[in-house]
Design a protein around this nucleic acid. Structure first.
Length: 106
DNA sequence: CTCTTGACGCCGG
DNA sequence: TCCGGCGCCAAGA
């Protein structure tokens, strides 16, 4: 398939798997959390190897799901109870910081 | 080596 | 809120 995941890709996929159900992270959030790469690089990793992880929990900064996968993503959101605002995720409530806390609410 | 592309992000208008 | 433009950075042609 597309070659093997690089070390950076492995980290990205690992973070995605750590996102709890009902929560999401933006592409840029993941890059910032890892301290390397950028949103485009995270996007490329998801495009190539995102099929093996909860890819629907990775959205754009404005909460819109991955292009061309909106329908499938919405189904998961409804199933997980992810806070929605119309056709996108309500980042104010669903944004995950990447930590292990069950609830980042202060 | 240069040019284009992309599961992005931010800033105006 | 929607839309267009520009910046960013790695990979492929």
């Amino acid at each position: 398939m597309h070659g093997d995941p690089t070390r950076f890709a492995e980290r990205v996929l690992d973070v995605v798997e750590s996102i709890p159900p009902g929560r999401v992270m933006a592409y840029g959030d993941i890059a910032e959390f890892l301290g390397e790469g950028g949103p485009r690089q995270v996007g490329r990793v998801m495009a190539l190897w995102g099929g093996g992880v909860p890819w629907w929990r990775v959205v754009r900064a404005d909460g819109s799901p991955p292009v061309c996968h909106e329908r499938r993503a919405m189904k998961h959101y409804q199933s997980e109870g992810t806070p929605l605002r119309g056709e996108r995720v309500d980042m104010r409530l669903a944004r995950w910081d990447g930590g292990d806390r069950p609830d980042p609410v202060t």
